[in-house]
Amino acid sequence: MRAQREQAGGTPGRVVRPATIYDVAAEAGVSHQTVSRFLRGYEGIRPQTRERVMAALSSLDYRPNLAARGLKSGRSHRIGALTHEVVQVGPSRIAESASAAAREAGYILDLISVDTRDPRAIDEALVQLTQHSPAGVLVLASTDEMLTALTKADIRVPMHLETELDDPTSPSETGVPALVEHLAALGHTRFMLIAGPPNWSAARRREHAYESALEQLRLPTGPILHGDWSAASGYRAIADAASPFPATAVLAANDQMALGAMLALKERGLAVPGDVSVVGIDDNPEAAYYDPPLTTVHLDFEATGRHAVTTLVARIEEKEIPGRLARHPRLVVRRSSGPVPALIG
């Protein structure tokens, strides 16, 4: 455990070398060839030996030398990734989990975020991603502009596109039907939707799921307004809505727009949920601390990012491609939703 001891009790200012496979082998009591086979994914290692090697890798905080591996194998261990709107909860959490999954698989994720309103910026980013011959390219795309740019791009390495398609066949994956059913069970019949921007496939899919859910319940859709995912746009949608306010239930296509909507309702003299119930989508980390805490659906963005990287790495390493990721949103009921006003008391 020499590398670890030096790290714990070394001389101040001294540069501590990282652990090597020889250190790992000594710690685990195996040969360095066994450690090397384990790191390459060899399956024929006895379970007890495998456990000792894994424990030693963890104890010594072993990190593979990707540059050396690339020189030896002739293959890059860098993945170029293109995303956008990282200030938004969903894209940022997907990118974060994708980066972690890449590290665990022995790759480095080079992430570039672009302004999707500028087609030239997207084209330049794609060129930048591919000019250093990455092992593969991961595109986390949600807008029409990104998808259009991809159709023109000349990408000659394995690629995976992670996007939410306009798929009307599985509305439950959006979480919207669960929200509509929750509100309808509370007696609400007058709804309003604050939808996301129309150039986002996820926004269109959630809007379609909303209309379908209300149609199945034989309820009118009510006003459909559009925001840009920001709290400010949710605020403006409610502040500019007709008077008297036309709905007792507001469904916002994400939690941030729901936050803005609740402030605007308060400024209009309407209580949440006493007069109007408000629900969102995403279950961002702050949703439980809104005033009042927000009813929403929890979406597993981390699973999305990890599945995207797992799929791309399988293509790079010519392994079996994993199947489609099944999404199971979970309704989280908090205090922003309540009975329709006529039923209160």
Rank of each mutant, 00 (worst) to 15 (best):
E211W: 01
A135R: 09
P198A: 14
R327S: 14
Y290W: 11
R63L: 09
H160I: 09
T189H: 12
R327E: 14
V309A: 08
G29N: 04
V180C: 02
M159T: 14
P285N: 06
E181A: 13
R93P: 07
I45D: 09
T49N: 12
S212F: 04
R330M: 10
M257Q: 13
V86M: 13
L251E: 00
L325A: 08
R324V: 15
T174P: 07
E181Y: 11
G10N: 01
P322W: 07
L183R: 13
A185H: 11
G280C: 08
L219R: 11
P322L: 05
F38Q: 05
H182G: 09
S336M: 06
H182N: 10
G10C: 05
A249I: 05
P223V: 01
Y235A: 03
K319P: 01
T174L: 01
P246D: 06
H188Q: 12
Q48Y: 11
A253C: 11
L312V: 04
W229S: 04
L263K: 13
R190N: 10
P273L: 08
V276T: 08
S36F: 08
A241R: 04
H298N: 13
R78V: 14
I112E: 09
L82E: 07
A25E: 00
H188M: 11
D166W: 03
F301W: 12
A252V: 05
M262S: 07
D291S: 15
S36R: 13
T34K: 11
A178T: 05
G175K: 05
R206M: 06
S76Y: 02
G44Y: 14
H188P: 10
R327Y: 06
I21P: 01
E211Q: 14
A213E: 04
V127K: 13
I108E: 15
G74S: 10
I45T: 10
M257E: 10
M159A: 13
S31V: 00
S73Q: 05
S212V: 12
E85D: 15
G10E: 03
A3T: 09
A149S: 13
T295D: 03
M54E: 15
G90I: 00
I94Q: 07
L126P: 03
D282P: 02
L109T: 03
Y289D: 12
P329A: 09
A68L: 03
G274Y: 09
P134V: 02
R50T: 07
Y107K: 13
P329T: 04
L219P: 08
A95V: 09
R63T: 11
G260V: 08
T304A: 15
R93C: 05
P292G: 06
R69W: 05
V24S: 04
M146Q: 10
I224W: 00
I238Q: 03
L299K: 12
G274Q: 12
D282S: 12
L343C: 04
T295C: 01
K266W: 07
R156F: 11
M1H: 14
